[in-house]
């Protein structure tokens, strides 16, 4: 099973820079999303020295080259100067992390500005995302206001480029929301996936079908036939299932599938293609779980094809 995955080499490489001042939480985030840390374990992380590179295979065909850039001033100064070409060339995504509790906003913005300027010179097309991190430390009723205020200051300082901002915390689903959004933008087959998923949802008489990347449990795509009042539900499910997966790992096992039913709905989570999991939800009480599972099996080949198709088209 594993050999098959290794044989098909990923063709799409993406360079992702993770920057921000020391202690902002960069290494914590990536450890939770990509290295199966639980939030509590991030307390043991030490400051990152210089740049830590990691190669992350995502959905089989996409290779993320993640540069976690240690944020102490000496390192930042060096990125902006001596290492400038190496760091900022051929960047597709810059993720800039601010500690929302920071007391030195002035200096945060100063560095951010310099980084943006270097990025603009070397990789003008890169997407820039700003994460205002550790929102859990702000009392809930103030969160929105603090976030907007910080966002305004950062945006004012670089009015030439468009920024997408998120308020995040390692303690809840906001982390998954931000990362799902940022990573999804890199998937070339996204619109094809969306279409296929919608079709699958209709054929299998589901009300909602969601596709997750299997290792990170980031949301890739979803098909929704009825509007649902909870707009944060996908990242919540990412967070819920990922936590449970880690709990299984602790028990020397791994999560395989879930089936949940009450008088209102049926939900099934199963491994889908080699790199994805699928969540199927139906509100109909006459839907048979076995039939749904059979449908999921049948759809597999099609989705494997879509996820692998980018490879052929680029050859």
């Amino acid at each position: 099973m594993e050999t098959e995955r290794i044989l098909s080499r990923p063709r799409t490489r993406r360079k992702v820079l993770l920057m921000g001042r020391s202690g902002a939480g960069k290494t914590s985030m990536r450890s939770i999303i990509f290295a199966n840390y639980i939030p509590r374990e991030t307390r043991r992380l030490g400051a990152t020295i210089d740049v830590e590179h990691s190669q992350i295979r995502f959905l089989g065909d996409l290779m993320l080259s993640l540069w976690d850039c240690g944020g102490q001033d000496v390192f930042l100064d060096s990125y902006l100067d001596a290492q400038r070409d190496n760091i900022f060339s051929e960047v597709q995504v810059l993720i800039y992390v601010f500690d929302i509790m920071s007391t030195d906003v002035e200096r945060d913005v100063y560095y951010f500005n310099k980084v943006i300027r270097c990025l603009h010179d070397a990789s003008a097309d890169a997407n820039v995302y700003c994460l205002f991190h550790k929102v859990d430390l702000v009392p809930e009723h103030q969160r929105q206001a603090v976030f907007e205020e910080r966002q305004r200051r950062v945006k004012e300082s670089v009015d030439t480029i468009s920024l997408k901002c998120f308020a995040t915390s390692i303690w809840d689903e906001t982390l998954y929301k931000a990362w799902s959004f940022m990573i999804c933008g890199l998937i070339p087959q996204l619109s094809k996936l969306d279409d296929a998923l919608l079709k699958f949802c209709e054929i299998s008489e589901g009300d909602e079908v969601v596709l997750f990347e299997r290792a990170t449990f980031l949301v890739i795509s979803h098909a929704t036939l009825h509007s649902h009042s909870d707009v944060h539900r996908f990242e919540k499910i990412s967070n819920i299932v990922k936590r449970f997966k880690l709990s299984c790992n602790k028990n020397q096992s791994h999560f395989h599938s879930l089936e949940l039913r009450n008088s209102q709905f049926l939900a099934i989570i199963e491994n889908f293609t080699s790199y994805t999991c699928v969540l199927y939800v139906s509100y109909r009480s006459d839907i048979q779980a076995t039939a749904v599972k059979l449908n999921i099996q049948c759809a597999k080949t099609l989705f494997e094809q879509i996820l692998g198709s980018d490879m052929e088209s680029q050859v």
């Binding site: 096992s253 999560f255 395989h256 599938s257 879930l258 089936e259 949940l260 039913r261 008088s263």
Partner: peptide, 10 residues
């Protein structure tokens, strides 16, 4: 009427 089944790899 609520029930839930989870299967593990082992």
């Amino acid at each position: 009427s609520c029930w839930c089944t989870i299967r593990l790899g082992n």
